[in-house]
Nucleic acid binder design. Structure first.
Length: 501
RNA sequence: GCCGUCUUAGCUCAAUUGGUAGAGCGCCAGAUUGUGGCUCUGGAGGUAGCUGGUUCGAAACCAGCAGACGGUACCA
């Protein structure tokens, strides 16, 4: 016990901060970090295979560059972490990778090969209410193409996203829509005020959660939820609401199942036949579909879904949203809906904010943190802690040099190893190795040093044998999984143990 | 942001109508002087979220604040 139990410093009035992490910020331990790293590595590989180059931009941007001031009728200027620099300019932590890309592309436009294709990963920060699977600091991995308006660029982004999920064995479906369809629908219905347009889009966006009835209420007068809260509706008349509902229903067959891409396009063509913008949107999707067929993205991986909205007043064309099909449960066995694990779309106005020139762009963002959380939950019951190092037991103060020498030899063989550096006895050291989930403990005590031997205990094997032994004396004296052998054979034996660990 | 529920040991939770805080698990130690698990024994660990109020007396009642959870809104 080396903890400080001295209370003399504990004078009255001395400030003692509570050890806690800020709301919406979480620590990550080895297991979770390993999952995240694997996700990022796999996705990065896919992105590079598709020809996207890596780009890293700083965590802070000037607030005006972040696009915090994109017009959004009823969103106040909250949601980012901002602070004033020495020179009083406002800086803010990035809330995604797209806005920094727009800044970078504008700043370096003349020197860039165009279309410019880059991917980026790293933490982003959003100052808003955290929830399960929703933190204020989280990891995203983005890929974007800047400088082409071809629908094929969108199709490629979709294929990229699908490949990214596949590389991680994540069962997902990518849902695709086109903002032009929604705009065409709205103008053909005579919905022209921004407030009413927003109302309709938000209502459509809730289809998956509230169903057709809920959406119908939100399109009309409004809806009261079970908590008694009333949400004001978009105020459409019955005919307009019916048109919106038939638009939304175009994603389904008459049996209610998901329709294939061609069928959805045909359904939508009937609904949007008097809207030029709607027809343009359908043309985009048709070309995307053709490209997807060429890219080998089939109907089970990417579908057209007219109810996908995303980023109001931000996206200008095709939009994508990835839904995780993995069934996850929390520690109490209740199912957890993870919802969107990635999304993106075409944003043709973002670079123009800086340069005044229209620069079309499209991209996708992979929700690394949320996926890692989903994977961690999905693995519940089969959670594999990260393997610890081979632990060398420290017997004697005077033999520390020998322990370190052996540790160096083991490391040189490519096996992680450490000398126990606490001051506790043998039993505690074994326990330490057990807790670290170490594959082996190595004993180089007085006997071994005198005889030129080393004793190696296979902890996994011992763990396995322990279940068959109930008598403590037998357990201790039997030394399950333990062998003493000439020191020259130590590395080979450890290799054997760690290879199967 | 709004509405609701909740906050007692590291974790999960108890404790007649207000009477001065307890269990299980975990942790540490011993039984077992060089051996993880099992078993037994012992031990440490709590400003009762925070602040104020009511009361002879508050974990309990009241108010404010903070945090957690659920719903809703928003989601770049």
């Amino acid at each position: 016990m080396t903890e400080n139990t001295d209370t003399s410093a504990d004078n009255a009035g001395e400030f003692r901060p509570e050890a806690r992490s800020p709301r919406g910020f979480a620590d990550k331990r080895a297991h979770e970090i390993a999952i995240e790293r694997r996700l990022i590595a796999n996705v990065s590989k896919v992105y590079e295979d598709f020809g996207f180059e890596a780009l890293q931009t700083p965590a802070f941007e000037y607030a005006d560059a972040l696009g915090k001031f994109l017009p959004d009728a009823d969103r106040p200027n909250v949601g980012v972490f901002a602070q004033q620099d020495d020179d009083e300019q406002w800086m803010a932590l990035r809330y995604d990778h797209t806005a920094p890309l727009a800044r970078f592309a504008s700043q370096n436009w003349d020197g860039l090969p165009k279309p410019f294709r880059r991917y980026a990963f790293g933490p982003v920060w959003r100052n808003e209410k955290p929830g399960p699977g929703r933190l204020r600091e989280f990891m995203q991995c983005d890929a974007d193409t800047v400088g082409t308006d071809r629908p094929e660029a969108d199709a490629e982004i979709i294929a990229l996203a699908v490949a990214g999920f596949k590389a991680n064995d994540l069962p997902t479906v990518l849902k695709i829509n086109n903002r032009k369809l929604l705009n065409g629908l709205l103008s053909s219905l005579g919905v022209s005020t921004p407030a009413q347009q927003l109302g309709v889009l938000r209502a459509i966006d809730k289809l998956d959660r509230l169903g057709l009835e809920g959406v119908q209420l939100l399109l009309g007068a409004g809806r009261k939820d079970e908590s008694g809260d009333f949400t004001k509706g978009a105020g459409l008349n019955d005919a307009a609401a019916a048109a919106v509902l038939s638009f939304v229903a175009a994603g389904r067959t008459s049996e209610g199942t998901q329709a294939d891409r061609t069928t959805v396009l045909n359904n939508l063509a009937a609904v949007l036949d008097n809207s030029p913008e709607g027809q343009a949107g359908l043309e985009d999707l048709s070309r995307i579909s053709t490209a997807l067929n060429g890219l080998g993205v089939d109907e089970s991986q990417a579908i057209f879904d007219p109810s996908i909205v995303r980023g109001l007043e931000y996206y200008t064309g095709p939009v994508f949203e990835a839904e995780l099909l993995l069934e996850t449960r929390d520690e109490k066995g209740r199912p957890v809906a993870f919802g969107s694990v990635g999304g993106g779309g075409r944003y043709d106005d973002l670079v123009a904010r800086f340069t005044g020139q229209q620069v079309p762009a499209t991209g996708f963002s992979f929700g690394v943190s949320r996926l890692a959380a989903a994977l961690a939950l999905a693995e519940t019951g089969a959670i594999k802690p990260v393997r610890g190092p081979v632990v060398i037991i420290a017997f004697s103060e005077s033999d520390m040099g020998d322990y370190f020498k052996l540790a160096a030899e083991i490391r040189a063989a490519g096996i992680p190893a450490e000398v126990y550096l606490g001051r506790s006895g043998m039993k505690a050291q074994m326990k330490y190795a057990d807790r670290r989930f170490s594959p082996a403990a190595v004993m180089l005590g007085g006997d071994e040093l005198a005889n030129g031997t080393v004793t190696i205990k296979d902890l996994d094997l011992g763990r396995e044998l322990a279940s068959q032994i109930s008598d403590n004396k037998e357990w201790r004296e039997g030394r399950p999984g333990q062998v003493t052998l000439p020191r020259s054979e130590a590395i080979a034996h450890l290799r054997k143990i760690t290879q199967t660990a």
